[in-house]
Design a protein around this nucleic acid. Structure first.
Lengths: 108, 108
DNA sequence: CATATAGTCAAGTCATGACTTCACTATCTA
DNA sequence: TAGATAGTGAAGTCATGACTTGACTATATG
């Protein structure tokens, strides 16, 4: 089991996922790449707002994007979820280390 | 693999974990039960604030508590993390279903 | 070239939520 | 029983962050 994760990044990830609109955007990206305009339509907010959310999502590696011509293509980035999984595993370890129960329960 | 989770509860969990103070409290509780006063000292906030955080954490099954006499004993509740794990697994499935890559990457 | 399209930047609005204070109740203890 | 301790409820303060507008740049297309 890989228990490595960067706590600072985990913080940012929890903050990022704490917002429903960003989870909405992320869900959309998991189904495939999308432009800013597409994401704006999907989330019913302005392109500016999407840009702001994307900046945040990219900072914690939950998404990435590249611009070709005038259109920016946004994609889901699995690296962030890997960090999130690391956080869970780490704390599961902490919990099981003390009480030996979370592992069983999470694995049930 | 168990892909069941309640989306509404997942929302609440992400919101709850999006706050650093609540993650702090939760970390403390994973090391063992604590009173409101202990948690307040640990997080350097008032007991009232802790009570508010606890209400939130309990709503999404990340913590539980019971009052005996005048002291309320707070405990970590693994049910919430189980839901969080369910969310990850579900979206991993969604992603792998379309592109067949997140599974490998998360499992690396 | 003229117009439409895609996105970005700076600035500001507004709601939410984290936290406090103060007054209060309940329980414990000297 | 008097005083201390543990927590709760109501109400308000304050900062943050989600979002918008409007002006702007860059790219595409008739």
């Amino acid at each position: 089991m890989n228990l490595h994760f960067e706590p600072a990044r985990a913080d940012a990830i929890f903050f990022a996922l704490g917002d429903a609109t960003r989870r909405n955007i992320l869900s959309r990206l998991m189904r495939g790449p999308a432009s800013i305009t597409e994401l704006a339509d999907h989330a019913a907010i302005t392109k500016t707002a999407v840009g702001q959310h994307m900046a945040l999502l990219q900072d914690c590696a939950l998404a990435k994007s590249e611009k070709r011509g005038r259109v920016r293509t946004c994609r889901f980035d699995p690296a962030g979820l890997r960090t999130l999984q690391g956080w869970i595993d780490y704390h599961r370890e902490e919990w099981t280390g003390r009480l030996g129960r979370l592992g069983e329960i999470l694995d049930d």
